[in-house]
Simulated scan of single mutants.
Amino acid sequence: MAVTIKDVAKLSNVAPSTVSRVIANNPRISEKTKIIVRAAMDELGYHPNFIARSLANQSTRVIGLVLPNSTDVFFQNPFFPTVFRGLSDGANERQYALQINTGNTDEEIFEGVIQMVQGGRVDGVILLYSRIEDKVLNYLRERNFPFVVIGKPFKDVELITYVDNDNYMASKEVTNYLLSLGHEQIGFIGGDLNFVVTVERLLGFEKALRDAGIRSNDDYIIHSQFLREGGREAIGKLMNLQDPPTALVVADDLIALGVLNTLSEMNISVPDDISILSFNNVLFAELSNPPLTSVEINIFEIGYQAAKSLIQILANPKVPVKRIIVPHELVKRHSCSHVSVVEL
């Protein structure tokens, strides 16, 4: 015979309603009571029927995740698995599951979102990116469907809850760091300009140069995919210039890895011949040769805060719009040094 909530309540010496509140992790229930009830659930082998609870509450207890690109990018770039872990932890705390939506084209991704929303498959959506123009975001706003953005929205910032770093300030700070090492010929390898993160980092980079009285060189600015191949292509173009840069700000560690590999093949030494500084501080930044100086953006925390913020909206649709800025920190390793002085 199946174990019921009443059986758990009897063993715990509490009301069945209290057991339900423990299952829902209601903050009004004391930790002592939660421990007692959960111990009784374990002893009896009771497992809550979340599907039945969801039907009763007209809730799926599922959060939809929308990726910016195909699954190839998701699995290749360590940013996404790391942010996914943060999202998973934030969702699991409140017994929410995650459903990933992706596709090979923007249109496939958009259609997938429509199916999730109109099919009642998810309670809310988290966008793992912020684009200059985005059909998905506009669609969610038009339907007044709960969502949170990872990344600063391009417009209507005050109307959308989002989680991000201060990418403008971070890029400005790291460019100033390279300037402090004596570099003036500084290049920038960014991601896709359709993404707000790329625009913000480029603006911060250019502002630091202007403040130092240095004109930005268009030949030193290249945009590529957030993949290792993008770094290989970009550095090839830069090092073939008649007067190549002595330092680079790279928008992503995976791009920077492609840069390092290509420079090694070209017998160009880092940091003796050129300094490299990148963003995200994923594991291989420390393990690369040389170890990369990189901006720690706390990827896990970004995901965790995004899930937490959406669940708060789902619990109370009138909760105020939030702007959550996760701190960043420059982690100095061995890919940057003072500019080499060429003796004439």
Rank of each mutant, 00 (worst) to 15 (best):
Q312W: 04
E206W: 03
I221M: 04
N298L: 10
N57Q: 14
F279A: 05
I214R: 09
E265Q: 11
E286A: 09
Q185F: 00
I186S: 08
L137E: 15
I160M: 08
N13L: 09
F145M: 06
G258M: 03
V174Q: 09
F195A: 02
L209V: 01
M1R: 13
E343I: 04
V321W: 03
P146I: 01
D7E: 06
V136S: 13
S54G: 15
N104W: 12
K172S: 10
K318M: 14
L128H: 13
F279R: 06
A285E: 13
I297V: 08
G124A: 10
S17N: 07
V339R: 11
Q118H: 07
E43R: 00
E107W: 05
T18C: 04
G191L: 10
V282G: 10
A9S: 11
K207G: 08
A52L: 03
L193T: 14
V37P: 12
K135W: 01
F284Q: 15
A97Q: 15
R201P: 04
G151V: 02
F80E: 11
G230Y: 03
A9P: 13
V341C: 10
T246C: 02
L254G: 10
L209P: 05
D164V: 02
N176P: 02
A251F: 08
F110W: 06
E200D: 15
S130D: 15
Q118V: 01
N240W: 02
G190P: 12
